[in-house]
Simulated assay, not measured.
Amino acid sequence: MKGSGDIPMNWYLAVLRKYAVFRGRARRKEYWYFVLFNILISLVLGAVDSATGNFHPETGLGVVSGIYGLLVLIPSIAVTVRRLHDTGRSGWWFLLALIPVLGTIVLLVFMLLDSEAGRNEYGPNPKTGLQNTLD
């Protein structure tokens, strides 16, 4: 990715543009910038909820942050599936998240792995420039 695509916010917006795209591949940069911006936005929205009295301690969520969480749920799952594809794994590996602790650790390792070199069954390597991740 060249030029303005290297701006971190563009990686976050690229995931939102591919709202429910579960096919193809997502490189580490796309995935981790999306995660980073989700954390930052969630912290800000949590502060807004707390300041406005919309935070519910028993659920750990506020109204605004809860709505945001619902809005980014599908893109979060989609980018995780595409990231798994980039490492040569089926999106069904995402179900490891249902296994407490161990499943999360295994998924974290998968998200940290480098892209599978060249083309795989899910498409061309997004690092090679053959596939623009902002399309």
Rank of each mutant, 00 (worst) to 15 (best):
E30F: 11
T52K: 13
M111P: 09
E30R: 01
D49G: 13
R119A: 10
G69F: 01
W93A: 01
G118N: 10
V48F: 13
R82Q: 08
K127Y: 06
I74E: 12
G3L: 10
E121F: 05
G46A: 04
V64G: 13
S4T: 15
N120S: 07
L102N: 09
V15I: 05
L130G: 07
G129P: 03
Y68H: 13
E121C: 03
P100Y: 02
G69A: 03
G118W: 10
P100M: 00
V63A: 12
V35W: 12
Y33W: 14
V15M: 06
I77H: 02
V15N: 00
I99Q: 02
T133R: 14
S4M: 11
Y68N: 13
N38V: 10
W92S: 15
L107Q: 11
N125I: 07
L108V: 11
L107P: 06
G53N: 15
Y31G: 00
P100E: 05
G60C: 06
G123I: 01
A47S: 14
F22M: 03
I39R: 01
Y19S: 14
L13E: 09
Q131N: 11
Y31A: 01
F110H: 12
V15P: 02
F37I: 01
V79C: 06
S65G: 14
W32M: 08
A117M: 06
D6Y: 12
W32L: 14
W93D: 02
V63F: 15
W32K: 01
S76L: 12
R119G: 00
L134Y: 15
L113Y: 09
D86P: 05
K29C: 10
W11C: 12
Q131Y: 10
E121I: 02
M1E: 13
L84H: 06
D6K: 12
V15Y: 01
A117D: 15
Y31W: 14
A47I: 02
L130V: 09
R28E: 04
